[in-house]
Amino acid sequence: MDVFMKGLSKAKEGVVAAAEKTKQGVAEAAGKTKEGVLYVGSKTKEGVVHGVATVAEKTKEQVTNVGGAVVTGVTAVAQKTVEGAGSIAAATGFVKKDQLGKNEEGAPQEGILEDMPVDPDNEAYEMPSEEGYQDYEPEA
C-alpha cells in the first residue's frame, strides 16, 4: 500500500510541476504579447503594419512553449490582441483601416495563427491545408 501511495504522490508532483510550467509559459506569452502591443503603439504610420505582424510573430513563438489545451486559448487571445492593436492603430490615425491585415508588401496577414497546427491532446499534428499553395516548377 505504501508503494501505491508513494507512486500516487510522485504522479501528483509531476502534474503540479507540469501545471506550473504551463502557467509560466502562458505568463511569458502574455508578456511578449504586451511587449508587441507597446511596440505597435510606438510606431509611426509606416511601421504600424509591420508592428502588428511582430506582435503576432512574438506571440506565436511563445505559444510553442505552452502545451496542451492552453495553446488553443493563448492563440485565440493573441489573435484578438493583434486585431485590437490594429483597431487602436486605425482609431489613433497611425494607419488607414484599409491597410490593416496586410503586410508591407500588401499581402493579407489573416491566418497567421489560424494555420498553425495545434492539437490540445498532444496526440497528432496535421499540416495546414494546401489550398493556398501553388506547385513550383523550376525553369529549365
Rank of each mutant, 00 (worst) to 15 (best):
Q79L: 11
Y133F: 15
T75S: 08
G51S: 03
T64V: 13
P138H: 06
E139Y: 11
K12S: 04
T72M: 14
E61T: 03
A107K: 10
E126G: 12
V49I: 15
E13K: 04
V49W: 12
Y133T: 09
A27N: 07
V15D: 00
G73P: 02
T59G: 06
E20F: 13
G68A: 07
N65Y: 09
A56I: 15
E114Q: 04
K43P: 00
K80R: 10
V40C: 05
V74N: 01
T92R: 08
E35D: 11
K32E: 00
G93Y: 07
A107C: 06
A29P: 00
S87K: 03
T92V: 13
M127D: 05
D119R: 01
M5C: 01
Y39F: 15
E123L: 08
E61Q: 10
Q109S: 12
P128V: 03
S42Y: 13
V15T: 01
E61G: 04
G31W: 14
G36D: 02
G67Q: 09
Y39M: 09
E46P: 04
F4R: 00
E28R: 12
E139T: 03
V70P: 01
G86H: 08
E139N: 13
T54G: 07
M1H: 00
P108F: 08
G67A: 10
A91P: 03
T81V: 15
V71M: 14
G73S: 13
G14K: 08
D115S: 05
K34C: 06
T33E: 00
G41H: 12
K80A: 14
T75L: 14
A53F: 13
A91E: 04
V63N: 01
E104G: 13
T33P: 00
E13W: 07
V118H: 07
K34A: 09
I88H: 02
V16S: 09
V63H: 01
T54Y: 07
V63A: 05
M5T: 01
D121G: 12
A53E: 06
G25L: 15
Y39C: 04
V66F: 15
K60H: 05
V48M: 15
V48Q: 00
T33A: 05
E35R: 09
V15G: 00
E61K: 10
K34M: 03
G73R: 07
P120K: 06
F94R: 01
D2S: 02
A107Y: 11
V71Y: 05
G31F: 14
E105P: 04
A76R: 09
T33K: 00
V37I: 05
P108M: 13
E28N: 02
D135P: 04
D115R: 05
A124W: 11
G86K: 10
A89L: 15
T72C: 12
E130N: 13
D115G: 15
Y133C: 09
T22S: 07
A56G: 03
K58M: 13
K45T: 13
A90I: 05
E46R: 05
K96S: 08
K60M: 15
D2M: 04
V52F: 03
F94H: 04
A107G: 13
K21C: 03
P138Q: 04
E126W: 04
A27P: 00
K32G: 01
V63Y: 10
V3F: 04
Q109P: 12
A11G: 02
P138L: 04
K96H: 08
A11L: 13
G93C: 04
D121L: 09
N122K: 14
T22K: 00
V26C: 12
V70E: 02
A76F: 08
K12E: 00
H50S: 14
T33L: 09
L8C: 01
V48F: 06
G7S: 15
F94D: 03
V70C: 05
Q109D: 11
E110R: 11
V77S: 02
D135M: 09
D119H: 10
Q62C: 09
V37W: 15
D115I: 04
K80M: 12
V48W: 15
E114C: 14
I88A: 03
V3Q: 03
G51Q: 09
Y136V: 08
D135A: 04
P108Y: 12
D121P: 08
G132C: 12
K58P: 01
V70S: 02
E105L: 14
T44G: 04
E114M: 03
G25Y: 14
E126N: 11
A11P: 00
K10T: 07
A91C: 11
K34L: 05
E123S: 11
G36F: 04
T44W: 15
K6E: 02
G111M: 15
K45A: 09
I112F: 04
E123V: 15
V40P: 00
S129P: 13
T64W: 08
F94G: 04
K60D: 01
Q62Y: 06
G41Y: 12
E28Y: 04
M1L: 00
A11Q: 00
K6G: 01
K10D: 01
E137R: 08
E57G: 03
G14E: 13
A76D: 02
G93T: 09
P128K: 05
G47L: 12
M5D: 00
A76M: 06
V16R: 09
V70F: 03
E57C: 03
L100H: 03
Q134G: 14
D121E: 10
V55H: 01
M5R: 11
V15Y: 15
T75C: 11
V37Q: 00
T33R: 01
S42F: 10
E123P: 08
P108E: 14
K45C: 09
V15M: 14
V70N: 01
Y136P: 07
V48S: 01
T92C: 12
A19G: 02
V82A: 11
K10E: 01
A140P: 07
E105V: 10
M116I: 11
K34D: 00
E28Q: 10
V66T: 02
V63P: 01
V70W: 15
D121N: 08
V77E: 02
Y39L: 08
G86R: 10
Q24M: 15
E137V: 05
T81M: 12
A90T: 06
E126R: 08
F4W: 03
K12N: 01
E104C: 02
V74I: 05
G68L: 08
Y133E: 08
E104L: 07
A85Q: 02
V3H: 04
V71G: 02
V55Q: 01
K58C: 08
V70Q: 01
D135L: 11
A30M: 15
P120T: 08
E20Q: 11
L100P: 08
A76I: 13
G84M: 15
A140F: 14
G68H: 11
M127A: 03
A78L: 13
A53R: 05
T22C: 09
T75Y: 14
T72Q: 10
E57R: 05
F94E: 02
Q62E: 03
G132Y: 10
P138W: 11
F94Q: 05
D135C: 07
G68T: 13
V55F: 12
M127N: 09
D115N: 05
V63W: 15
T44N: 01
T59Q: 01
P117N: 05
G132M: 13
A56Q: 05
L113E: 13
E83Y: 02
V15E: 00
V37D: 00
F4S: 00
H50L: 12
L100A: 14
S42C: 08
A124R: 12
P117L: 04
F94P: 03
A11T: 03
L8V: 04
S42A: 15
A69H: 08
K10R: 12
G106E: 08
V77N: 01
V3G: 01
G31P: 00
S129T: 08
A11C: 15
A78R: 09
V74R: 01
G68W: 15
A27Q: 15
P117V: 12
T81C: 08
V82Y: 10
A29D: 00
V52G: 01
V26S: 00
K43A: 08
V95H: 13
A76T: 13
G73N: 07
E57T: 07
A89I: 13
V70M: 04
E105Q: 12
E137P: 05
A76N: 11
V74E: 01
P138A: 09
G67D: 01
A89N: 02
S129V: 07
V49L: 08
E130W: 09
E61F: 06
A124S: 11
P138Y: 08
P138D: 06
Q24A: 13
A91R: 05
M1D: 00
A17E: 07
A30G: 01
Q62L: 08
Y133Q: 09
Y125H: 15
G68K: 12
G36S: 11
V37C: 09
K97S: 14
L8S: 00
A19H: 05
M5I: 00
V3L: 06
S9N: 15
A107I: 03
V77F: 08
N122H: 03
L113K: 09
E104D: 14
G68D: 15
E46Q: 06
Y125W: 09
F4D: 01
A56F: 07
V77Y: 06
T59R: 01
G31N: 11
G51M: 14
K6H: 03
E104N: 08
M1C: 00
K58Y: 06
E57P: 02
P138M: 07
D119C: 15
A89M: 07
E126C: 14
A30N: 00
K23M: 14
E83H: 11
S129Q: 06
K21V: 13
V49A: 11
Q134T: 03
V49D: 01
E139V: 10
K23H: 07
E83M: 10
E137M: 06
S9K: 14
V26F: 14
S87G: 13
E126V: 14
S9M: 14
